[in-house]
Write a protein that binds this DNA or RNA. Structure first.
Lengths: 342, 342
DNA sequence: CTGTTAGCGCGTTCAG
DNA sequence: CTGAACGCGCTAACAG
């Protein structure tokens, strides 16, 4: 690792001269500047980030804490975060909470030692269940801003990037209603999570607002632990006679449901419409292709980065914002009304 | 952020006394140690990682560079890396090369400024195509060890963690041969990548070694850019009359092929066996379930971390190792011979 | 037992 | 135009 000192020695000038020369200080002669830069590039000098951080009290590093990288949605968000952060000259320190409150808390604390300038995170299932927020506030008290995305803590006062989950489920339900469906069942595996609640609300609301729908909201909770999910979905299809539409608000059951329905001899979408919240990367695995509500993971990541960096660089204490990212209804083969739009 | 200096002031002692007390130095009296620790925990003191890094010339941070986080395999590896790194007290700085040589090179250089103690990476498609290695050697010249996993550069002398791709394809092919398949086609989307070559070699080798197989190796390359993959696979099934087995050596076509075959009225596995290298998380999406060759992503990540940290902490210059991780053949519904084992 | 000093790499005074 | 000195937070060698 090449340092200013080494450059100074090989050039026979002082350290501060080198430092100034490298940033084109008017204090230094054109001549010296040229010489210094020449040697610097030749020796491949790179300012030590740690020393800079120590000096400026800024690391240009963002702490990212996500619950589960194997979830494709979070992977997409991370992708967006990485891209935008790189663009703005920031690095990422990535932690995975694995849906555990303990790990999330530890990561937060670990990075609050001068490692990062702020956090982007989505909170763990554990934390949501326990409704714990102390650790967030501790971090923010140390002047480390937090941006939460997707799964956010309502009672924490920080910037947030969310999807309009209510609206998404509301629109999706309306699509099914528009097809004349009379028996729309919602399948849920996200029991305790805030977004799950909002989606359920959107669904029930749409049904209640409908003048033609006579049935009651029908929410079926499936535990992710309960294997196999296929069996559980089969039960749903068998136990709910006259079921003609499925709204799957987690990221997986929609895809599975297609196969189960077909195996049971139910025609999709003629006898049963299905809309999922699945990732688009799974769409081409099934036939017919699943109609989905898409979440723009990358965009969420990018927005989070911008919100955070603006907050960091302006040391901004103004009102915190909640940014809502639009979802998109991608109607494909598992619904009939491919012409309906939001 | 609480510093030693602040602790020293509130306690009325010197900075170095505090420093020593916190690490139970025998130079300091039990009494002072107790007092210091008391205040330290109360004020929630955390040693500044940057300052430590600057002092020790060690950051306890690993630079991770992966080609594409949306690829489930890499996500799994990252998961394994994160877990093991945390266990050993290391942080991760994550970069995504997006399969670009340029980005990979930039990331490598960017982190070579004291940000990390070493790298774990899988090299980009771009880099493999160009067969570029200068940037790796530059980093290693700065005394930053590199561990490469999965996609490795053969002509770079560093630690490597790989799967036995040859053996994996060899065994998979033998399973198909053992079923009495006479027309085994290999489908490939990984044209330029080293692992792809090895898998193809395993396949051809198995066929050539077989005394009963009369056909020739039949390798079909499909470009990932060519959308839709379904159509391409359909062509393969139609163009190759008497085809009775498919070995899909990338991570996606196996899953798709099941659907395509069924749509064409081909019975799986009666008329057509399929083995894929797909991620196990996709397995439950199809019916019948895909037989796969599994790559233990997490294990690869963990091994990489241990290799790297050992190298870092021992400043070890000994021979570089190539660690081979075993794969597993998971025979499920798309093959008949569920009893055959490796 | 405790304090002073120096230095890790850098940038920013302030003197020359 | 150039250099010496200082401090960011920390540890370690050295004095007291």
């Amino acid at each position: 690792m090449i340092t200013l000192k080494m450059l100074a020695e090989t050039l026979g000038v002082s350290v501060s001269t080198v430092s100034k020369a490298l940033k084109d200080s008017p204090e230094i002669s054109k001549d010296t500047i040229a010489r210094v830069k020449e040697v610097a590039t030749q020796l491949n000098y790179k300012p030590n980030r740690l020393a800079l951080g120590l000096k400026n009290r800024k690391t240009r590093t963002i702490g990212v804490i996500i619950p589960n990288i194997l979830n494709h949605f979070f992977a997409k968000v991370l992708n967006g975060i990485e891209e935008e952060a790189t663009k703005r000259g920031y690095n990422l320190i990535t932690c995975i909470s694995n849906e555990s409150y303990q790990k999330e808390k530890e990561s937060l604390e670990l990075l609050a030692n001068g490692s990062v300038d702020g956090y982007i995170m989505s909170i763990s299932e554990d934390t949501q269940r326990m409704d714990e927020t102390r650790h967030f506030k501790d971090a923010m008290d140390e002047n480390l801003p937090i941006v939460m995305f997707d799964r956010v803590a309502n009672n924490v006062n920080c910037d947030k990037v969310v999807i309009d989950d209510f609206g998404a489920a509301f629109s999706a339900t309306n699509v099914l209603l528009g097809e004349g469906r009379k028996n729309i069942v919602l399948i849920n595996t996200l029991e305790e999570i805030s977004v799950g609640k909002l989606r359920i609300l959107g669904y029930t609301n749409a049904l209640e607002k409908s003048s033609t729908y006579s049935g009651k909201p029908n929410v079926v909770n499936i535990s992710k632990e309960l294997e196999p999910l296929e069996g559980e979905i089969e039960k749903v299809l068998k136990n709910n006679k006259d079921i003609d539409a499925l709204l799957c608000i987690d990221n997986i059951t929609g895809t599975i449901a297609i196969g189960v329905a077909q195996r049971l001899g139910i025609k999709v979408p003629e006898q049963l419409s299905i809309i999922g919240f699945a990732s688009d990367n799974m769409v081409h695995l099934t036939s017919p292709k699943l109609s989905t509500v898409s979440q723009y993971g990358e965009e969420i990541g990018m927005e989070s980065v911008n919100l955070l960096i603006d907050r960091i660089e302006n040391n901004d204490k103004s009102m915190h914002v909640i940014k809502t990212i639009n979802y998109t209804l991608n109607l494909r083969g598992t619904t009939k009304a491919a012409t309906l739009k939001k």
